[in-house]
Simulated assay, not measured.
Amino acid sequence: MSLFRPPIVRSATAALDRSLFSKTFPIAAARVINPKNISRIQAQLNKSHAILSLDRLKPVQMDPDLALASKGGKCLLLNPEVKPDDSNTWSKVLQEASEKDEIKIIPYDLVLDYDYWQYLDVMTSLLPEDAQGEIPVGFSMVGHVVHLNLRKEYLPYRKIIAEVIVDKNPQIRTVINKIDQVGEQSQFRTFSYEVLFGPDDLNVVVGEGDCVFEFDYSKVYWNSRLQTEHKRLVDMFSPGEVVCDVMAGIGPFALPAGKKEVFVLANDLNPESYKYMKEGIVRNKVSEIVQPFNEDGHTFIHHA
C-alpha cells in the first residue's frame, strides 16, 4: 500500500539514526468486545476485505486502551478506507457486527518503526533523490559475509549501506566491498576488498548440495550464484560414472557429485583451494569417491 511508507530522512552520509524512521499512521481498528470471539470475527472481516493486510504485520493487536489490554483485550486493524467516525465507510459485515455489539470501531495509531522497514525501504528513505536510480540490492551472501560490488556513485554511502544490510539480515556479521576486479591481482581469482562493517573475518561456513564447506573467502574463489548450475551438472551424472573437474575450486561441484557416488578427479591450482577441498572431502565423507589434485590444468588433463 502506498500509504505505508517510511519517513523521508535523506541523511545517508551521517550516522544512522534509527529513531528517525518511526512513523505513526492514524487508522481504524475493531475492538472485539469478547476476546473469545476474535477468530470468528476476524474470519468474517477477512471475507469482506475489511482487515488491514500489510506484510510482516499481524492484524490482531492488543487494545490501545491499556486497562482493556491488561485484561486481554484485543482489536483487529482495519483498512485505511475505514474511518472510525464515518459509518458510511464501514462494510456491511462491520456494520452488522457493530450493531450486535460484538465490536466497536475505534481510532488506532499504528506506529511503524525502523525494525519494521525492510532494507530497500530504509535506503530509499536515506539516499538523496539523485541516487534513487539503482539502489544496491544485488549483493552476494557467503556464510556470515555480504559481498558488495558498489558502483562509484554509491561509494560515499557505503558505510551506512553496510550497516543497514547487517541490521536487516541477522545472520550477517561482516560486509565487504570489492575494490578490484576478480583475478586482477591474483591468478586464483581472488580480489582485494574493504571491510565496511563488522570484523575482518572471512572464515565462512556454507551449505550447498547436501555438503558443508568451510573456507577463508579471501583466499579462494567462490560464487554462490552458481549453485543452480552446480546442481544442474550433478543431476546429469549417474552413480559410478567418472568425471574430471579441471578447475574445481574448493569442490562445490565435485563434492555434491561425490555424494551421488559419482567418481570425481578434482583439481585446482590454488593451494588454498586444494587445502579446503581436501578438508571438505573428509568432512563430507566422500574420500573414497573424490580424489583431489593441486596441479596446473594442462598437467592435470594429461595425467587424468
Rank of each mutant, 00 (worst) to 15 (best):
G133W: 01
G133R: 00
E134F: 05
E134K: 09
I135T: 12
V137R: 14
V137G: 08
G138H: 09
G138L: 00
G138K: 00
F139D: 03
F139C: 02
F139Y: 15
S140A: 11
S140V: 09
S140H: 12
S140E: 15
M141D: 03
V142T: 05
V142Q: 04
V142Y: 02
V142H: 06
G143L: 09
G143W: 14
H144Q: 14
H144M: 05
H144Y: 10
V146T: 12
V146W: 03
H147I: 03
L148V: 04
K152S: 10
L155Y: 03
P156W: 05
Y157H: 08
Y157Q: 01
Y157K: 04
R158G: 01
R158Y: 01
R158P: 00
R158E: 14
K159I: 12
K159Y: 14
K159A: 13
K159C: 10
I160L: 05
I161P: 05
A162C: 07
E163D: 05
I165V: 13
V166E: 01
V166R: 13
D167F: 12
D167Y: 06
K168P: 07
P170S: 15
Q171G: 01
Q171M: 06
I172F: 03
I172G: 04
R173M: 07
V175E: 10
V175S: 09
I176F: 06
I176L: 07
I176A: 03
I176M: 06
N177D: 10
K178A: 07
K178C: 03
D180A: 13
Q181L: 10
G183P: 09
G183D: 09
G183Y: 12
G183I: 00
Q185S: 15
Q185H: 10
S186V: 11
F188C: 02
T190R: 15
T190H: 14
T190N: 11
T190L: 09
F191C: 14
S192V: 13
S192P: 07
Y193P: 06
Y193V: 10
E194S: 07
V195C: 02
G198N: 12
G198A: 12
G198Q: 11
P199Y: 02
P199N: 02
P199V: 08
D200R: 15
D200V: 09
L202C: 00
N203S: 10
V204R: 14
V205P: 01
V205A: 10
V206C: 00
V206M: 07
G207T: 09
G209D: 06
C211H: 06
C211W: 02
